[in-house]
Design a protein around this nucleic acid. Structure first.
Lengths: 110, 110
DNA sequence: AATCAATATCGTAATATTGCAATATTAAAT
DNA sequence: ATTTAATATTGCAATATTACGATATTGATT
């Protein structure tokens, strides 16, 4: 064991879990926020923005890319990473839906 | 190594990472969705709703509680777990902010 | 062609997560 | 007081994550 049983859950549940898991590290949150802040998507200086070694940053970028949160293309000796809007909008939509359900319920216990 | 360097990131980044990390497993997404679906917060049958053994479910509930996504009180020989609205609203607000920034930018590369 | 600058990959150690059987706890029901 | 039902904890094995030094790759620059 130790391997997540994804096959027992719905596609949507797995999809949300994949996205949130990818964001479940402060360095990756910081990367996304940095990409939001800068204008362009040519972000060769991400490493300098983070308190982590270059291979570590590279690995975090890879995970964000695997999860579909960022897109990247090789551009000469630097890299063009940018946010995948659709992935973040999926999260936004999801949590907006959750919030709406909470509003509709107005649970008053605990 | 292997331990996340939380001290190098902002409180907000760590906070968002903690919440998203807690949601970063399909079973925990399923638990939150189940709590949203049922009317009451007395949820003694969560175990039956999931394809996992009872100790595993209990552990996932513990993680959700540690992250602040759910609140729970012992109620006799069953348990009253319910959603912590504030935590989910924090996520909703966060992703709404992200989405707003994306709208404002309209990046057209990648 | 040799060097440089930027990023990726490999290898490895430390730590964390996932899952469950076995067992413990707890309070209600008999 | 025993039993029952529900949840928690312990202990352990399998796997995953995090981090980084060393090295490789890649394309631009000289």
């Amino acid at each position: 064991m130790g391997a997540t049983k994804t096959e027992h859950f719905t596609d949507k549940q797995n999809s949300i879990a994949t996205l949130t898991k990818a964001l479940g590290h402060p360095a990756r949150v910081a990367i996304i926020e940095y990409l939001l802040k800068v204008d362009a998507c040519i972000c060769g200086d991400i490493v300098n923005e983070l308190p982590l070694a270059q291979p570590t940053v590279s690995q975090h970028l890879k995970e964000l890319k695997n999860a579909g949160l960022i897109q990247g293309e090789i551009e000469g000796n630097s890299i063009c990473y940018c946010i995948n809007e659709k992935a973040l909008q999926k999260l936004q939509t999801y949590f907006a839906g959750v919030s709406a359900k909470l509003e509709a319920k107005k649970l008053n216990c605990c």
